[in-house]
Write a protein that binds this DNA or RNA. Sequence first.
DNA 1: AAAGTTTTTCAACAAGCGTTGAATTTTATT
DNA 2: AATAAAATTCAACGCTTGTTGAAAAACTTT
Lengths: 218, 218
Amino acid sequence: MPRNAKATKERILDAAEHLFAKHGFDGVTVRQIMSRAGADVALAYYHFKSKRDLFDAALLRRAKTLNELRLAALEAVEKRHPNDPPSIEEIIEAFTRPMLEILNEKPEEWRDYMALVAQVNNSPEWGGKLMTRYFDPVVNRFLDALRLALPGCREEDLYWSYHFLSGALTLTFAETGRLDNLSNGLCLSSDMAATSSRMPQFIAAGFRALCHDSRKPD
Amino acid sequence: MPRNAKATKERILDAAEHLFAKHGFDGVTVRQIMSRAGADVALAYYHFKSKRDLFDAALLRRAKTLNELRLAALEAVEKRHPNDPPSIEEIIEAFTRPMLEILNEKPEEWRDYMALVAQVNNSPEWGGKLMTRYFDPVVNRFLDALRLALPGCREEDLYWSYHFLSGALTLTFAETGRLDNLSNGLCLSSDMAATSSRMPQFIAAGFRALCHDSRKPD
DNA sequence: AAAGTTTTTCAACAAGCGTTGAATTTTATT
DNA sequence: AATAAAATTCAACGCTTGTTGAAAAACTTT
């Protein structure tokens, strides 16, 4: 592969990521993407074979990295105390912190991607299939950890709890500005530090409340 | 206004609601909508004046009803014990139950609408503006009630808690099928009864954990 | 039954869509 | 320096898009 072919491909993905995140799959034209990437329209079909495949490629590119970071964070927590299972807060943090950290390190690279995932996750059209394909293996790994931390928890409660977590996470990273309006500017959707301290607390409490030991009587 | 003009307008809104909910604003053509409504394309522009205005009209139609039901539920709870403030669970339930009840009563009418709102809420493009316009007055009323139930709570924590609630609620009603895949069919996104018993518990616990009294030392 | 409104139909518009094949330029290999 | 391969450009295709103006039909009011 020639020297700057990859550079072009990446530039296309950057542009696609940005525009798809903001306006969704159908709200963006291939011409807009290629204009932003500074390349000819036909190149989109040379490097990726269709608009739809370009969309998938944009989604896949960073999913791999995020999955690896999350797994590493979980394993680090598990090794910290080898005997007893980690707390729920620690597990949730291992899930959410990698997002916040990498967003802090390379905001210009990851901001759009997070919004893109948020949009996909809530889309009846793509949500089920794509999120399952790209993220469920790692999510299942986290659910295993949570099962150990919540002995006797009913399976349904565990899944629903994760679902609520996913929704909260997703809306937060969508950065729609709703929160800013509602709070008259007191809270900013873009303030990820505000999230990082609050989300694990909020979510862990939810898990604890819902996933009590079903083997014991109430 | 002639007898069945309103009927046509409603049929158009039904079709728009359904298709917009499934594929988003840009994923749907006016021709598709009018074909589903069984009416000529030009009628869309006669009754509503543009595609965008039709979208807004579809969103607005049921928002009014939902807001009224929520307010009524909140006032009912408040009147139940006139002296002390209602519990957080009761307030959250007053917010979520109307959705679930009306979904139970008239599923074919409301199912699409809930998914539509879910999609809008997570859209960086429309989310901030539209949700603010149609729902924030009632949301502020609920936040007032929560302030009473959580004395000394920091304002930021309250707003972020609501944000997490909104995200969890939203993803649940988007019915993307993700939960079904993740749980291998054990949980169904469409099972609203499963939500109604779990969401208030989960969310109320989150509020409690995050919105402690900031005036007292930890 | 005539006149006036409101609703519906029909046909068309300019613009933009995703996509493609062939020609051309750039890079890698011999 | 010649040859092969990869990357890029250009121009175009058939089709669909949101939208509109004028004519026809349905309905109300006189």
